[in-house]
Design a protein around this nucleic acid. Structure first.
Lengths: 212, 212
DNA sequence: ACGGAAGTCAACCGTTCGATTGATGCCGAG
DNA sequence: CTCGGCATCAATCGAACGGTTGACTTCCGT
């Protein structure tokens, strides 16, 4: 028997942390060494403690979000593996997490055994992806998926609040003509042909959030 | 000391059930008698077991959702108290839950002590609402909040997929004129003046879902 | 039986949107 | 340096949208 895997739980929901802790506490091969409610706390813990695997929630209310935290963690000198654990299965979340250096991406409704197995895989440095997650990544790799420029995302965000082209132009201090140009590009990249469709597919892909 | 409160946990996430169980197992005044992954399972349990308080998640993947389950439960002969426990804080969810007979409405990111206290209140038949939840209910009561007709919701749902008036009319086998009339009513009721704004406020109020 | 809410349709009109074409300046990679 | 991507703006034109008014039917509740 080796020494147990040292885990850090990062989630803003006390209940979820409690559930994970219970799941891992009852095994002899894992040891939860700390919990954190957001990314900042997680980094503090890592500065002081040795950890093999971080279980990371994305989208944490208030504090540093999971993707940023993951990026920071994986750029540490001797980074632990980061296993992302979330309820959301949108393209943007998955891609952002993987691109930020996450070792795995599991959904919170996974059965406990899968979670435990994913943690072990992550500790070995292997990639662990939930069933649907892998498929989405493949899709993404097949279609290069034109990425939106920062400005375009900004337009999209305001568009998502129901602004007209004129309001949009005033909000951003640009002409209405420019707004239209951006919109044409956005429509192209999203593969839609009107603003309402743009909003919903943007929400689906996680480019913007429904309620901010 | 009385006999402990008998609890039923209903949530489709094993991790959450585990966390709740851990929280309540360590107290002598509560006893988790069963868990269920959706509404149907919950009803089966209640048919066979005596329960004081049901902790109910809304929005459960696949099975019977929480609101329907709550409605069924509260119409039982001697219903247990239903304490809704969810991550969503939208008007529609809250209202639907309360209207379905929920005794309380708590958010999953609440600290454990509040949850425990809410369970105890629920058992006494008292209403337990999370901090922001109460405020929303008051808002709702102040403004009567014109409710949308079924047809209007249907229009809104399709609108949320980016359809134009023409597509909308073809989809519903009505004339474009009728679609416009419905839209005008929807705009009125939602207090907006264009379709994009209608979509986002509808999503915010939980009338439609972002990703279906 | 009557009133009201809901759903349907029509015609009109001004505004906005979407598409197209073309142009400018900036910046960073090769 | 040059090319491409990004952001900016302009002008045009047909299509779509938003507001308004008015009208007809059905259905429900009092």
């Amino acid at each position: 028997m080796n020494e147990p895997l040292r885990l850090l739980l990062v989630d803003d929901h006390p209940v979820v942390r409690r559930g994970l802790r219970a799941m891992f506490d009852e095994r002899s091969d894992t040891l939860v060494v700390a919990e954190a409610a957001d990314g900042r706390e997680a980094l503090e813990v890592l500065a002081a403690t040795s950890v093999h695997v971080v279980l990371m929630d994305l989208r944490m209310g208030g504090g540093m979000d999971g993707v940023t935290a993951t990026r920071s963690i994986t750029s540490l000198p001797e980074p632990p593996a980061v296993l992302v654990l979330t309820v959301y299965e949108t393209d943007a979340d998955i891609l952002a997490a993987v691109e930020a250096g996450a070792t795995g991406y599991m959904l919170k409704d996974s059965p406990p055994e899968q979670l435990v197995e994913a943690v072990r895989s992550a500790a070995r440095g292997e990639t662990a992806l939930g069933p649907n997650v892998a498929a989405r990544l493949f899709d993404r790799l097949r279609g290069p998926e034109e990425s939106l420029s920062p400005r375009e995302v900004e337009i999209l965000r305001l568009l998502g609040q129901g602004l007209s082209n004129r309001s949009l132009s005033r909000e951003l201090f640009i002409s209405e003509a420019t707004v239209k140009t951006h919109l044409v590009h956005i429509f192209d990249k999203l593969g839609v042909d009107n603003r309402t469709a743009a909003i919903t597919t943007a929400i689906q892909r996680g480019i913007i959030r429904a309620v901010q």
